[in-house]
Design a protein around this nucleic acid. Structure first.
Lengths: 180, 180
DNA sequence: CTTACCATGTAAGGCGTTACATGATTCA
DNA sequence: TGAATCATGTAACGCCTTACATGGTAAG
């Protein structure tokens, strides 16, 4: 129950402020949602069909310069369903970091390996932090637009998190050096 | 490939420094690993059988005060397999926070709901931070023991992370008040 | 002309939780 | 006596990724 799928809510949520194709949805997921959520075509398209069967979305076939596209829009029933999910309590927030798993399970069996994993992790964090800071910069100038406000909050979450991760990396590397 | 199961490595890693039953393994997962990993009996016991078939662990039936238990130990082959995985690059670190999903998708449709979710999240963080600080306190006095060092690093990771989360919660709540 | 992007979808198969089933011991 | 903990396992079922299959357009 706590592990039920959320793709329907993700789609409904995205459609609640603009019409999108399945392809567009994937781009949104890989963009703004990337930091805290994921999803592939193999899960998007079937969910879209299911939502249509349930009357929560409507599709419209279009031909834009010879290219076929199916644009989905949310229905009243879809909005109701979304609103309900939104007020329900959060079921699960989870983190699965293989880096920490290797660190813990490796148990210092090979200190150099531990260092390599932490450094790799730090590099990734620095990169992602840069991306988020760009988002933040762009969003700050448009905070009056209602639909950017909450996006901004999630970006701030990512920034604070990555900053903390990077600080931890430095602390951990120093600590390991001391233990040598 | 990037989504292959890790339960075998988790078990091998835990067995690499003490013999355990399936039940014990579950307790370790719900304890020290809880912050960054998970797993249920339905995944532990079958993996244990599989590892035995592969010759990576050995089992020993015991009767402790009338209670049957099966204690597993790691074999040389198991240690080799673990060592290999440990040096392989990290495939995936991921975060799935429904709290952020609701915040982003809700898009301020209901500010009060957003506040409630953030406050709920903050409470959970404060609680978890307390638990981790206790772990930290206990570990600090035993840092000379080799097998506590890396555990300590993962605890420090959790502490820094939760501290950052809590700061974000306060910032976000203030921000939302300003937007009212 | 070729690479990148737009666009939709299915099938196989693995992963992992939940619920079920069972039973002994310890502690209050 | 009842609740909590110790202890092992299976079955059903859902979720999701990966890989496959196809084909058009835009840009360099």
């Amino acid at each position: 129950m706590a592990n039920s799928k959320k793709m329907d809510q993700v789609i409904l949520g995205l459609l609640s402020h603009e019409n999108l194709t399945g392809y567009d949805i994937k781009k949104r997921i890989d963009g703004a949602l990337k930091f805290f959520w994921g999803g592939s075509y193999g899960s998007i398209y079937p969910t879209l069909s299911q939502l249509e069967d349930e009357g929560k979305v409507m599709k419209e076939y279009q031909l834009v310069s010879g290219r076929e596209r199916i644009e989905y829009s949310i229905t009243t029933k879809g909005r109701d369903s979304l609103r309900q999910w939104l007020v329900n309590p959060v079921e699960k927030d989870e983190l699965r970091y293989e880096t920490l798993l290797k660190l813990y399970l490796g148990n210092g069996a090979d200190m150099e390996t531990a260092r390599v994993h932490i450094k790799g992790f730090e590099e990734k964090c620095i990169h992602e932090l840069g991306v988020l800071r760009m988002y933040e910069y762009n969003l700050k100038n448009n905070l009056n637009e209602e639909d950017h406000k909450y996006y901004y909050l999630t970006v701030r979450f990512g920034i604070r998190t990555y900053e903390a991760y990077i600080e931890w990396c430095d602390e951990a590397l120093k600590q390991i050096d001391m233990w040598k």
